[in-house]
Design a protein around this nucleic acid. Structure first.
Lengths: 210, 210
DNA sequence: TGTCGTTGACCGACCAGTCGGTACGCTAAG
DNA sequence: CTTAGCGTACCGACTGGTCGGTCAACGACA
């Protein structure tokens, strides 16, 4: 590596288009890709830093551990989804429309960040129990926010109420979380189409029984 | 270990109730439990054989590799579910009832074998690519069989046909596969209740739109 | 009945390699 | 002079897998 260069190595550094992001961001981006490709435990720290064009010293300067790297990836996608859910939940439309919009949106963002989605559910259990508990708690808050939306619809008589709202949320998000196992960006259906179909199925299953 | 004993060690051998299963079965049972608890990569071969009361020599006598152990666990649960699906699909009842029964059954068996379910979707990507492809292919056949059922209902006009049957199957099995991440046997809802609710939601979402 | 030879089941010490993590040094900026 | 931002060298723990060896059961044969 060119030691004479100033802060950032020159334009072409072999990291594939992420060349002038700061080191920390580059490490996160590369780790996300590698974790999604080969799994957390099968990706060595050495591979990550090599792909990012730095060394282990740099990585351990920005992150406490390999676990910490994974945790940061989780936190990032959770922040994004939580923000967007709050936006859709607080809109002024009828409850059914808000649920439909929020459901469709979470699918679109999951597809747009498919690597994060994959990592989340494959590698969660690799984290230290304490860290895992923290991540789970944040995830739970997200689910509860969505559940409140469903309950609002049930109280309004728009949704069937013979199925617990919690179960409905687990049901729907099971589908969302498993997008990573079968969806491919080059497949026949674009993310927006899947989002619409899944949201339709959710709303349809919530119609009160005849 | 008592070397003087004959084939099977005496009654109490500290393996916790699996004492007189043959060694191969014991290894599978113990590995299933440990893989579900701590993940495939975080479970060493030494831990497995210690918990099963044998040594590495024994394990490598029955299995080619650690991967082979995982593959056997997959194959076992896939065989079971495939058999049961064929049974429900071939019954003489109306198509809606058959889909409902098959959907509820796969949930019950997933809950009954929750460890296998967890392992399946957490550790699949750890397998060698070739092995992984074989397992995926078998899994795909199972999904296709289920999809055919949905399509049968669509052709009969019982189910809505504005959503591709493939998508419906991915939608539903996402929920099934994620049972392992939130369901606990000591929770408030028994498996049969969840099975009923999920199957109801599926059938409800398949009703033709008004 | 006694005693070989063979075979399947299993033991346990060991190896070569890999991994996450650390200690320390250098450089440039403030 | 201090601090941030890294690079380099290296450690110790651990892993999957191997390999020579042990032991009991069994069939053959006298």
């Amino acid at each position: 590596m060119a030691r004479g260069a100033v802060r950032e190595p020159a334009a072409s550094d072999g990291t594939g288009g992420v060349r002038d992001e700061p080191v920390r961001q580059r490490l996160l981006a590369v780790a996300t890709r590698l974790f999604a490709e080969k799994g957390f435990e099968n990706t060595s720290v050495q591979e990550i830093v090599s792909a990012a064009g730095v060394t282990k010293g740099a990585m351990y300067h920005y992150f406490d551990s390999k676990d910490d790297l994974l945790r940061e990836i989780y936190a990032r996608v959770l922040r994004l989804q939580t923000e967007r859910l709050a936006m859709f939940a607080g809109a002024g439309e009828p409850i059914a429309d808000r649920v439909h919009a929020a459901a469709a949106d979470v699918i679109v963002t999951s597809v747009d960040n498919l690597d994060d989605t994959k990592i989340f559910f494959r590698s969660m259990h690799q984290l230290a129990p304490e860290t895992q508990k923290a991540v789970r708690a944040e995830r739970r808050r997200y689910h509860e926010r969505f559940r409140d939306l469903v309950e609002e619809g049930q109280r309004a008589g728009v949704f069937r109420d013979d199925v617990p709202a919690d179960l409905v949320v687990d049901y729907f998000f099971g589908s969302v979380h498993h997008l990573g196992t079968w969806y491919h960006a080059d497949g026949p259906l674009p993310g927006a189409t899947i989002a619409r179909h899944f949201a339709d199925l959710l709303l349809s299953s919530l119609r009160p029984p005849t």
